[in-house]
Design a protein around this nucleic acid. Structure first.
Length: 434
RNA sequence: GUCCCCAUCGUCUAGAGGCCUAGGACAAGAGCUUUUCAAGCUCUCGACCGGGGUUCGAAUCCCCGUGGGGACGCCA
């Protein structure tokens, strides 16, 4: 039975790199019909915080990664680590040393000499010269286990069969191998996956911009898009497909197809993929997903759910994030229009626009039914009568009614804004025209 | 500095000795469409780090350089 674990320490928000490590573990577990375990490595007294743990768990859930066991907490297993350490002490494989952190003595492992080898599933055999290793702290003098010790004890106790973790842990492996050897137990299989890099090819960190999963959620990315994109960083299916539903990714995911090279995180491609996912979504679902974004907007009075649905349908094909989609709804539901300066200058403040809008106001006002067909006919007829292109009316109308130069199809937009508001805005825009 | 890992278009990648005049996707550029933007469609630009081997044949195997990254905590 395959058993894997994701073992975050609650000292910060779920980082995109950690999320990718979690994902590969999870995908592997699901592909192999194994067990995915969540373990909380909270042995850093100072930096561990409950709020971080809550954020990490909710981010995992948001991404769709459910765990079969846990969360297990290392701070609740202190006696277990002490037992194992005591054994090594008794056997003369470890020794005690005066504490640096507190009253207690630290327990330290004597490093074996010679060479230890790990058979990495991604990298192949990696040999370590143990004479280069310093003795290893097992139990810190605050009584808590050190990372490399707790990790080994837990992986053994929890019967972990595959340790899938970031490349940066390769250098921890000889230390852990030494612990396995001292304890006389068999290590699991190791798979060290490549790191996610920033655009400058160094390890992705805050200075590269948004790094936590929450950041991306807030920026309006869909979890499906994020998972799909992240899965492709260091892994590709046999046919090199990119847009893949989760079930397909699980089906195709194997460690053999995980690469060795660090992958730079490309927000451009994520954004593109997010747009693709938005296009495949049901409009009603998008509204639900946008609720928090919409709620955060002031001056927005969304009293008409049916109208919101139409608005979403209208902008769904062109939005790349939920935030963008929510933004495009603003001028439908707000009393005031925010005019884009550049748009006003280049489209409204043009000789002759005033007369065009006046004529439009008159003809729109005379329309019995303010529907798509009538509006389009009306605008095109006026263009013919004035001997100008329809575009010369369409663009000023768009800016006058929406405040923006770009947007969805104008006629559909105007229908949704409604006759009353459209006329009001056309009139209101007159003083911006020439 | 020491140890370890890595090396195909700007980016993500396909490629397991001949199918490679190296394929796809994002980005970029051009065009079509047109009511702007987005989408869509068509096209263009664009890479095997260098040098030695091995082989009839190397992006693929080996060695050496070079470049990049990571790790060197009583942090995890």
């Amino acid at each position: 039975m395959v058993r894997v674990r994701f073992a975050p320490s609650p000292t910060g928000f779920l980082h995109i790199g950690s999320a990718r490590t979690a994902l590969f573990n999870w995908l592997f577990a699901r592909h192999e019909k194994g067990v995915f375990i969540l373990r909380v490595e909270d042995t850093d007294k100072e930096r561990s915080k409950d709020e971080f743990l809550r954020e990490i768990m909710s981010s995992l859930k948001w991404l769709g990664m459910d765990w079969d066991e846990g969360p297990y907490f290392q701070t609740k297993r202190l006696d277990v680590y002490r037992d194992y350490a005591g054994r090594l002490l008794k056997e003369g494989k470890a020794y005690e040393e005066e504490g640096k952190l507190g009253g207690e003595k630290a327990i330290i492992l004597k490093m074996p000499k010679g060479t230890l080898t790990m058979e990495d599933l991604i990298h192949g055999p990696v040999a370590f010269d143990m004479s280069l290793q310093k003795d290893l702290v097992l139990i810190k003098s605050d009584g808590y286990p050190a990372y490399n010790f707790a990790c080994v004890v837990d992986d053994y106790d929890m019967k972990i069969t595959y340790v899938i973790r970031g490349d940066d842990h390769i250098s921890n492996t000889p230390k852990q191998l030494a612990v396995y050897e001292a304890l006389g137990i068999k290590p699991p299989k190791f798979a060290h996956i490549p790191l996610i890099l920033g655009t400058d090819r160094s390890r992705m960190s805050k200075r590269h911009g948004a790094t936590s999963i929450s950041d991306y959620k807030e920026a309006g990315f869909l979890s499906e898009a994020l998972v799909n994109y992240i899965s492709l960083l260091g892994w590709a299916p046999t046919d090199n497909r990119e847009m893949m539903p989760l079930a397909e990714i699980i089906k195709e995911f194997t460690l053999e197809r995980v690469g060795k090279t660090g992958a730079a995180f490309d927000i451009n491609k994520l954004t593109w993929m997010n747009g693709e996912y938005i296009r495949t979504k049901d409009a009603k679902e998008l509204i639900e997903l946008m609720t928090p974004v919409l709620a955060a907007k002031k001056d927005l009075n969304i009293n008409n759910k049916a109208k919101l649905l139409e608005v979403v349908k209208l902008f769904q094909p062109r939005a790349k994030t939920l935030v963008e989609l929510a933004d495009s709804a603003v001028f439908f539901f707000s009393d005031k229009v925010e005019y884009d300066e550049e748009a006003v200058k280049s489209v409204l403040e043009v000789e002759g626009v005033k007369d065009k809008l006046k004529a439009l106001i008159e003809r729109f006002g005379a329309l019995e039914t303010f529907d798509l067909q009538n509006i389009e006919d009306c605008v095109r007829k006026l263009a013919t009568d004035l001997n100008i292109k329809a575009a010369d009316l369409i663009h000023p109308i768009r800016v006058a009614v929406t405040g923006r130069k770009v947007g969805a199809s104008l006629f559909e937009t105007v229908v949704l804004v409604g006759k009353e508001k459209t006329l009001e805005r056309l009139k209101g825009a007159l003083d911006k025209t020439r």
